[in-house]
């Protein structure tokens, strides 16, 4: 696995004046002049009402959508300047995703699901599976490496998904409602695990959630409202 060296100074993620409209000629501006700065190792939660653009923001930060205006820099690299292939490579090596619906491939075992991003990046299967085994131990599923997702509980599946997001030692993990499909207690344990693993790996995290309790596990909380991020004022959620 190869990863781009991070510049010694400056924030890990710097977003300036980000604008993005929904698709279509009359598309509403969902992100309008949005700024965000995320330091290395920082773990930030973003809250906001439905339709406020949280998922759109994650997709832009993950290089899956291009901004209509503004600059998104990850480790100093302006994502807008990268061609599609380089953007995909960067996502493959420096960004990890955790989804609300887990999105493990149902026909692959837990270990193979975790190994998949590494293999897509050219890591030989034995090394990828070795890393997957190591991560499964870390998330407490060392004995379930050959289990298919259908054979795991919801919490176990999301722990595998967390392990998959960390497999390639990303600089940034984007978690989109990772506890939305889990029981309250299990959800909090998964978040704790995510936080713990990120901390061990030295990565940063951006958590999108509706749950204030989940958001409180982060270093700081931001509200997405009217297309911009605002510091949480301690009210609502």
């Amino acid at each position: 696995m190869s990863s781009s060296p991070r510049p010694p100074t400056g924030p890990l993620l710097q977003v300036d004046g980000l604008c993005r409209r929904f698709e279509g000629p009359q598309g509403r501006a969902v992100l309008a002049d949005l700024d965000l700065s995320l330091a290395a190792g920082e773990y930030v939660a973003i809250m906001g009402p439905s339709g406020s653009g949280k998922s759109t923001l994650l997709n832009v930060l993950g290089g899956l959508l291009r901004p209509d205006a503004g600059v998104v820099r990850l480790e100093g690299t302006d994502l807008a300047t990268l061609p599609d292939a380089a953007l995909t490579r960067l996502r493959r090596r420096r960004i990890g995703f955790v989804f609300q619906a887990f999105h493990l491939l149902p026909h692959l075992s837990a270990a193979h699901n975790i190994a998949l991003p590494l293999q897509l990046d050219g890591v030989p299967r034995p090394q990828a599976l070795q890393r997957a085994a190591q991560l499964l131990e870390q998330v407490g599923l060392g004995g379930r490496r050959d289990a298919l997702p259908g054979e795991l509980s919801g919490g176990e599946v999301q722990r595998v998904a967390v392990a998959r997001a960390l497999a390639h030692r990303p600089a940034l993990v984007l978690a989109d409602e990772p506890t939305g499909n889990l029981d309250h207690g299990i959800g909090l344990r998964v978040l704790a695990l995510l936080r713990e693993q990120l901390g061990e790996a030295g990565g940063s995290g951006l958590l999108v959630t509706h749950s204030l309790e989940a958001a409180r596990t982060a270093d700081r909380i931001l509200m997405l409202r009217d297309g911009r991020l605002w510091p949480w004022d301690g009210e609502g959620g």
Binding site: G62, A85, T88, R92, F97, H103, L120, D121
Partner: peptide
């Protein structure tokens, strides 16, 4: 959705 996940995981 499966292909979408692969895109998220960095598959071209």
């Amino acid at each position: 959705r499966e292909f979408g996940v692969l895109v998220h995981l960095g598959a071209t």
